[in-house]
Each structure stands twice: as C-alpha cells, then as structure tokens.
C-alpha cells in the first residue's frame, strides 16, 4: 500500500509515493527525485558521502527514514549552488582543486556549509573536527580545509560589503 510523503527539497515542495515508509531519504533523493549528487558510501551513517541539510542541520541521509521528514526542508549539494552560480564554498573548492576522486566532496561541502553558518571564522582545527564525520580516502584533506578557510574569508568579506 503506497503512502505519500510531503516535504521540501532545495526550496521546492516534493510529494513522493512509497510502499515502504522506512525508505531512507538517500534512496528518495537518488531514485525518486533523480538528485544524484548525494552519494551512497556505506549505508551505516559512518562515511558522510550522503550528508544533506535538514532544517539547516547536517544529517547523514542513508538511514534517515522519509517518514520523519513531514514539513521539513532538505538541502542537497544541488541546492547550494550551480555551475552558473557557484556557492563560495564550491568556488573555493574549484580554486583550490580540492579533491581527487571527488566521491566524498558533496557530503563534505554540505558539512562545511553547516559549519560556516554556525561559525563564520573557524580555525583549521575547528574545520577538521567539523569534517571528521566525512571520510576522504584519497588524501585531499589539506586542500579541502584550505578551500573551506578561503570560502569563509570570501563569505565574511561578502557580509561586510
């Protein structure tokens, strides 16, 4: 028996019909809504590849049941910027060439966005701790942290302007 679930993704209302109310948000994003930017890494809430924002908080979406999302707003990597209008974090990641295989990057960008909204001037150590829930296996950590610092500076300058 299919049920309907209503919430918001990247600023737009969505309504999906599912047979299984325990369907994880990650499956809904990828298989129902065609938003492939949020990646599957482990399904165990360990690696952070599937990180999204739910009402602004970073959440691993691989085990988050869709039935818990009524009335909530979800933001995915596709919602924070685009090729045409990159978010300062995305621009900084491009500028720093911060990534190797890039599979972890969408989740890391989401974690970084959540950090900068709470703490616009994080230290390197604070950035590292904020990203410890995201695994990068290629060893791009230092570039990624430099990019977050750079984006933070750009965003602070933007606030002042």
């Amino acid at each position: 028996m299919s049920q309907r679930f209503d919430f918001s993704v990247n600023g737009k209302p969505v309504s999906v019909a599912l047979d299984n109310e325990a369907t994880p948000l990650l499956n809904v994003l990828r298989n129902e809504l065609g938003l492939m930017g949020t990646r599957f890494g482990c399904g165990l809430e360990q690696c952070g590849c599937c990180m999204v924002l739910i009402d602004g908080e970073p959440v691993k979406s691989c085990n988050r049941d869709v039935s818990t999302l009524a009335g909530k707003t979800v933001t995915t990597i596709e919602g924070i910027g685009s090729h045409e209008r990159p978010h300062p974090l995305q621009q900084a990641f491009l500028d720093e060439q911060a990534g190797q295989c890039g599979y972890c990057l969408a989740g890391i960008l989401i974690s970084a966005k959540a950090l900068l909204e709470k703490n616009p001037s994080p230290t390197r150590k604070e950035i590292a701790l904020a990203l410890d829930g995201n695994i990068c296996r290629c060893g791009s950590h230092n570039r990624i942290m430099r990019a977050v610092e750079k984006a933070a500076a750009v965003m602070r300058a933007g606030e002042r302007a």
């Binding site: 990828r30 930017g37 596709e78 890039g102 969408a106």
Partner: peptide
C-alpha cells in the same frame, strides 16, 4: 590546468558509474 572532472563532483552532477 583545472581538472576536467572536478566541477561535476563539486556541483553534484551524475559524475559516477553509481549514478
């Protein structure tokens, strides 16, 4: 030279075989 493959990964495109 900027990497050809990185933008798709930074903007969350269907960049991987998984997608």
């Amino acid at each position: 030279t900027p990497r050809l493959d990185l933008p798709a990964k930074i903007f969350g495109d269907a960049a991987f075989i998984h997608d």
